[in-house]
Design a protein around this nucleic acid. Structure first.
Length: 423
RNA sequence: GGAAAGGUGGCCGAGUUCGGCUGAAGGCGCUCGCCUGCUAAGUGAGUAUACGGGUUAAACUGUAUCCAGGGUUCGAAUCCCUGCCUUUCCA
């Protein structure tokens, strides 16, 4: 959420930011609401001030036995008006709040302007594409009997999978490997958050009210399945103040993620790439407002480190203004090379949201010497999407005979297994 | 599932009987100052947030906030209703 006063006093900047994001939101509506709110507020508060002035008078007169019927009648009228005005103010405030909640974050100046993913900026390529003496297959061709989509469809429906045998273990191995690296090498505290969250948490991170369609909601509860661990982990500090010297705080968590994938009907229907449920290791950082962009560089390096250790080729891109998520000020995506698909595919997304989520979730920092508490800056990034990492390993480490070599760093997590034989 | 108690400021904790003088006693903590070889103690002042008005910025000033939302009333921390949460006891 943007700051109300900031919007009021920086109309041009906000307009420009909305244009950059190709948003159709009207700033005029907000300005009108704000004007109306302040007018109503003034009238309301004037009356309340009068009431506060007169009320003790009534008490005094009553004590000394004077007649108060006239003055009480007058106050009664004022009170009626106060009631009406109060309702009006609340209504306008609600509208204004809703408007503010639907405004996307302002892109950082270093973010390239653009309309779609075509305009994303490639920052760097790391590693090299593996070469094959044969035509590499896609992951679902490689491990057909260990990725059972048919039975998962029976159990639940489309976009679910049943991992079996070595691939179930490989998924778990990858997750454990990622968590261990983040915890022991990168200094993240490992947490296991709830996988179901309430509405306030989703508003805090910016998933609600705008993106309800992307979420699975529990029937008869105002609870939702998490679309990413970013939601529960960022909300660890909702409505709290963090002492400056505690910063930066860093958390990592392995959770399942649940996404309705509304609006992606025809896309990636085959394989693991786009599922309703998948595992992700998430990194969340709480930063001092002064250095959140440095924290972003740090976080992307942590995600990259995982890929480096796994020996996977990838590239880092900066999302353009049109492709960037609602809450982000700046986002780096990591795209891993998938030889079977002959494409780079997103495997991590690291964002700095600045104070956008912190304002929504009321996460503050007490800064020495500053009378006012500041909003923390929050960052989140995948480190990494586990299922997609598994896809990358299958496709990059496939052999001519259809077997899969297990990267060395994972072998200890696989009880020493070095290779997954063909079905 | 049955019964009871309770939710007040950063924390503890008065006030709720009998509504007005309570943004809210007292204590702790914290900040700044004084004092004392050091430490401890003592001592003085200050110490919530949000939204308005005001100002170059302040000062200053208005309103709201005693879990949340309604109600009664000229006036609610205090009375009534609903919800949420916590604790204790019984099964």
């Amino acid at each position: 959420m943007l700051d109300l006063k900031y919007v009021r006093t920086h109309i041009e900047e906000v307009k420009e930011s909305l244009e950059k994001r190709h948003s159709s939101l009207s700033l005029d509506i907000f300005l009108e609401l704000d004007e109306r709110r302040r007018k109503l507020l003034f009238e309301l508060e004037t009356l309340q001030a009068k009431r506060n002035l007169v009320s003790p008078e009534i008490a005094k007169k009553k004590k000394s036995g004077e007649d108060t019927t006239d003055i009480m009648a007058e106050m009664s009228i004022i009170s009626e008006r106060v009631k009406v005005l109060n309702a009006e103010v609340s209504a306008v405030e609600k509208e204004e709040e809703d408007w503010l909640l639907s405004v996307p974050n302002m892109p950082h100046e270093s973010v390239p302007y653009g309309k779609s993913e075509e305009d994303n900026r490639i920052e760097r390529y790391v590693g090299e594409k593996p070469s094959f003496s044969f035509s590499p297959k896609e992951h679902f061709e490689l491990a057909a009997d260990k990725l059972d989509f048919e039975r998962a469809a029976k159990i639940t429906g489309a976009r679910f999978v049943l991992y079996r045998k070595e691939l179930a273990r490989l998924e778990r191995a990858l997750a454990n490997f990622m968590l261990d690296v983040h915890a022991s090498e990168h200094g993240y505290e490992e947490v296991i958050p709830p996988y179901i969250v309430n509405r306030a948490s989703l508003i805090g991170t910016g998933n609600l009210p705008k993106f309800a369609d992307d979420l699975f909601k529990l029937e008869n509860w105002d609870y939702f399945l998490i679309p990413t661990a970013e939601v529960p982990v960022t909300n660890i500090y909702r409505d709290e103040t963090i002492a400056e010297e505690m910063l930066p705080l860093a958390f990592c968590a392995l959770t399942p993620c649940f996404r309705s994938e509304a609006g992606s009907y025809g896309r990636d229907t085959k394989g693991l790439i786009r599922q309703h449920q998948f595992h992700k290791v998430e990194m969340v950082r709480f930063s001092h407002p002064d250095n959140s962009f440095e924290q972003l560089e740090l976080m992307i390096s942590h995600a990259e480190n995982i890929l480096k250790k796994l020996g996977l080729h990838y590239r880092v891109i900066t999302l353009c203004t049109g492709d960037m998520g609602f809450s982000a000020r700046k986002t780096y995506d990591i795209e891993v090379w998938l030889p079977g698909q002959d494409k780079y595919r997103e495997i991590s997304s690291c964002s700095n949201t600045g104070d956008f989520q912190a304002r929504r979730a009321n996460i503050r920092v007490a800064v020495k010497g500053e009378k006012k508490k500041l909003f923390a800056h929050t960052l989140n990034g995948s480190g990494l999407a586990v299922g997609r990492a598994l896809v990358a390993i299958l496709e990059n480490y496939q052999q001519a005979d259809g077997s899969i070599i297990i990267p060395e760093v994972l072998q200890s997590y696989m009880r020493g297994l070095k290779k997954i034989e063909k079905d």
